[in-house]
Design a protein around this nucleic acid. Sequence first.
RNA 1: GCCCCCAUCGUCUAAUGGCUAGGACGCCAGGUUUUCAUCCUGGUAAUAGGAGUUCGAUCCUCCUUGGGGGCACCA
Length: 492
Amino acid sequence: MTTTIRTRFAPSPTGALHLGNARTAALNWLYARKYKGTFVLRLEDTDIERNLQGDGSRPSGEELIIEALDWLGLHPDEAPSTGGPFGPYRQSERANHYANQAEQLLASGHAFRCYCSPEELDAHRKEAIAIGDPPGRDTKCRDRSPEEKTLTQAKGQPASIRLRVESGPVYFEDQLKGGLSIDGDDLGDMILVRSDGRATYNFAATVDDYEMKISHVIRGIGHLSNTPKQMLLYRAFGVQPPQFIHIPTVMASGGGKLSKRAGATSLLTYRDRGYHPDAVLNYLSLLSWSSKSGEEFFEREALIEEVDLDRIGATDTEIDEDKMAWLSGQHVRSEPATTLVDHWSAFLDHTNFNMNRDDLTRSAEVFAHRTRLFSDAQSELETIFGEPTLESEETQVILGTREAKIAIDQLHTTWQEVDWQAKTLGATARDAAENTTMSKGQFFSAIRIAMTGERKGPELGDIAYALGKERTLSRLKHALDKIHHNDGREII
RNA sequence: GCCCCCAUCGUCUAAUGGCUAGGACGCCAGGUUUUCAUCCUGGUAAUAGGAGUUCGAUCCUCCUUGGGGGCACCA
């Protein structure tokens, strides 16, 4: 028997995704992709109060989630906006499904109507906790006689629907933790449908996972305590539960909680800071999971191939932005220049320099290894492509020697004849350095300053290649003029 | 109060009832390179504490401590 793999990511649209949520989404997506299954996005928006509404200027919680998933490349096969065979995919639109299932549980005797008010229930719970009893169990409504029921119902009093939970062990299995058991007394008669008719989380989630034929529920370990409740529901429905995989919590760096309200941890913040999305996906997968080989750098396809739920650890993890940035650098380096420039473009402000797409592509070829985040490109390119001023005293001292001027002049001549490739340019520059009376260091400093105005920076061949022949030669020429001009005296 | 989960370098992790507890990020040092960066090499640093089982425990059991989660007409 082969089961079709169907995973789901089911966030509530209360705000942007953070790294923890994203990690859950990533694992679900990766797993579905690996086994040619289906990845479902479902919105758990039954708590209207907390849903983040959008308006003309602000995106809604739903839009924010889609945007984040999209950035990471985690495209759902079935989703609220695109639909699918088991829709709708917003819980707010599935009220009739929950009502139907609740009716059936009522009919089969698994559930009962409760006429207690929230206040009464609350008071009862506090009392139970105070005397050390398990809360959540009160028998007032649970065992009413049929006559009494019809009588009360006739009065039209608002009622919630609760599950009849018996004492005794509730056993369930987690793929990572093995078999777990909890006593029904510790669970209580959970409320399935509120007195206003809306389904509660555990009921809605279970009905949905069941009706949407979810095969693997991969979710945060915070849901471990919900699992026995959901188990009871599967039992009541008379169906096989899905495979449960509870993954450890992702904590903020330093050990604090990751909060949807802490703006700094929003996934989109990392996008805006210039992290490579493939690196973030790669990094997220490395949280509590490790490959058999110990390898840590994985491109998208390799990650799908490698991911293995059985190699997920048990301990909570902290975010390490340094490592994520390092990984970003690794992914940047493996990105072809032609596509890297598209990523860079979003972060470039050309105010202080001019360059066209060809300039950009050549720069990506030779400077990519100097960057980690896409946003690093700005300062990198600005110092190369911005017009050098050559005004500083240091610059004048270095360029103002007879040797420097000869060196620049000679290289200007040599480079007119060479094939304009980074390697060739570098090689001819090194040759030229041999033929001067200057030290190598002095020589290269002088040339770099003539070209960019900076002493430090990329290799000369790379700079020349990126700038292009015309611009390079004109800068060298300009530097010669500038020295002459500023000095006010003939050097040669 | 009760219930559940977790515990290896600063961080992410590997490992087996038995080699010097391995790797990655970071940090430090050295090397390559014209400088910065990259890259290469080396170094730094961990089994929370206490009992028990065992010839032998990081690993199995119990306790303590610490951390996380739950006990909702929140998700």
